[in-house]
Design a protein around this nucleic acid. Structure first.
Lengths: 144, 144
DNA sequence: CAGAATCCTCGGCGATACTG
DNA sequence: CAGTATCGCCGAGGATTCTG
């Protein structure tokens, strides 16, 4: 028996690593903004302010729960502003802040990258899949 | 009762929307690359090729399962190449492809954005939280 | 209209054990 | 060393219902 099992070592190392992650703001924030709904909402709002129901209609696949939840965190992070107009039916508008606007620009770049490299990815996948299908069971036994 | 309940409408609209999402390559790919482990692996491999055990040590928090799983999808998507050297203990190296390299560049930009805007986000959060704490229970009853 | 609250499901992910 | 296979937890998120 070694001084430390692999699992034990990983466990101990993870402790310090988690501490690092908790401290690491960029990684934290990155996880937030890479959320599916945040991405879609950012895109939807890039054209201009929208009401709650507008957003719901613009992104039909989102549930009320996730719509509200996502908008709340985005508001909390200063990506959108929420404006309540006290009318007979209450009216709430959501609008990108300058901060949100700058993020949209970046997300657009990522989107562009994805679009311009989709062919490569799909080609790679087809190739990978066909190779995997043609391969015998015991891969490691093959000699090149 | 209207011709369609809100839920029913959403359900129908989601059908067409899901079809759109399934067709939408960039969104699909975006979800992939925004994975926590993919991000970390991309960063780890940006410095150069690494072995499986190297990666495991570089990212202690990742389990074998997720490490293997993430590397497989990245390989399938053409982001990394997997090189098996048939030695006495088998040796496997992972290396970024040109495609993976270009993605690293973009992720770095996102990371930079996150870092340079963390102050704004944190400030927004503090403000939001303090406002929320100071707020009375029935928000909507307040008259401006 | 714009949510809040509740219940429940599904799958991502970690832990563990085994293999060539 | 570099995985594969299996089990089980937990939390993200959908469906539903209620409110100001």
């Amino acid at each position: 028996m070694p001084t430390l099992t692999a699992a034990a070592r990983r466990e101990r190392e993870r402790d310090s690593y988690n501490a690092y992650l908790a401290e690491c703001p960029s990684h934290n924030l990155l996880a937030q903004i890479s959320s599916k709904w945040v991405t879609l909402l950012l895109a939807a709002l890039s054209a201009g302010p929208l009401r709650y129901s507008d957003l719901s209609r613009a992104i039909p696949s989102v549930s009320q729960k996730m719509l509200t939840q996502s908008l709340r965190t985005m508001e909390r992070d200063g990506l959108v502003v929420r404006t309540v107009t006290a009318a007979v039916p209450v009216r709430v508008d959501y609008e990108l802040t300058a901060l949100g606007g700058s993020l949209v620009g970046l997300m657009t770049q990522v989107k562009d990258w994805a679009e311009s490299h989709m062919d490569n990815v799909y080609e790679a996948r087809r190739e990978y899949d066909s190779r995997a299908a043609a391969e015998p069971v015991a891969t490691l036994n093959k000699r090149g």
